[in-house]
Amino acid sequence: MNEIKSLADQLREKLRTGEMDKSPPPAKEKKITDPPAAGVPKKPPKVSDRHQKADAFFAAIEAFRPELSEKSMIRVDARTLHLLKRMKLAKGVDMNRFIVYALHQYLGQHPWLAEHIQETLKNSAP
């Protein structure tokens, strides 16, 4: 029973011992394909690209340290709440942290908004 190893166990063992470096990479067969016709939509991004972007996004959220000293009850639609709950289950990202992170990002991309609100308050005060 001790001699049975899964493929993953075998690969881990090879990586530890360095056997993977000694073997030559497998030869790739070249396929002859026709060039894409004009007007053909582009392929969606590779899964690995999406994973890299998602990993970078969630790493940025984890690195974000908001000062959560104030409480505010916000209302969201059912679809958004469902997404936030799934994100909590999938990645362990707190809903409040995500919302505050998204708001900080939005305000960082639109600095004129905070200034506009400040000017509007100054001008409307008696």
Rank of each mutant, 00 (worst) to 15 (best):
S48G: 03
E115I: 00
Q52F: 14
I99F: 01
Q105G: 13
R65S: 12
N96K: 15
M87N: 03
M1W: 04
V76K: 08
S69A: 15
M87Y: 04
V100S: 03
G92F: 00
S6I: 02
L84Y: 00
K85V: 04
R75N: 10
P66F: 07
P111V: 00
Y101S: 04
R65P: 01
A54L: 15
A60E: 02
A90K: 12
K85R: 09
Y106K: 07
K53D: 15
M95H: 09
T80A: 09
Q52N: 04
F58E: 04
I117S: 00
P44F: 00
D77Y: 07
R16H: 09
P126N: 08
L68I: 12
P66S: 03
L7Q: 08
I61H: 05
K30G: 06
A8H: 09
D49L: 13
G39T: 07
Q118G: 00
E3F: 10
L84T: 02
A114R: 10
E19I: 00
Q52K: 02
E62R: 15
A102F: 05
D9F: 07
G39S: 13
A37R: 15
D55W: 08
K85G: 00
S72R: 12
E119A: 09
E3R: 14
I99W: 02
Q52G: 13
R16F: 13
M87V: 12
A8R: 11
L121P: 08
L89S: 09
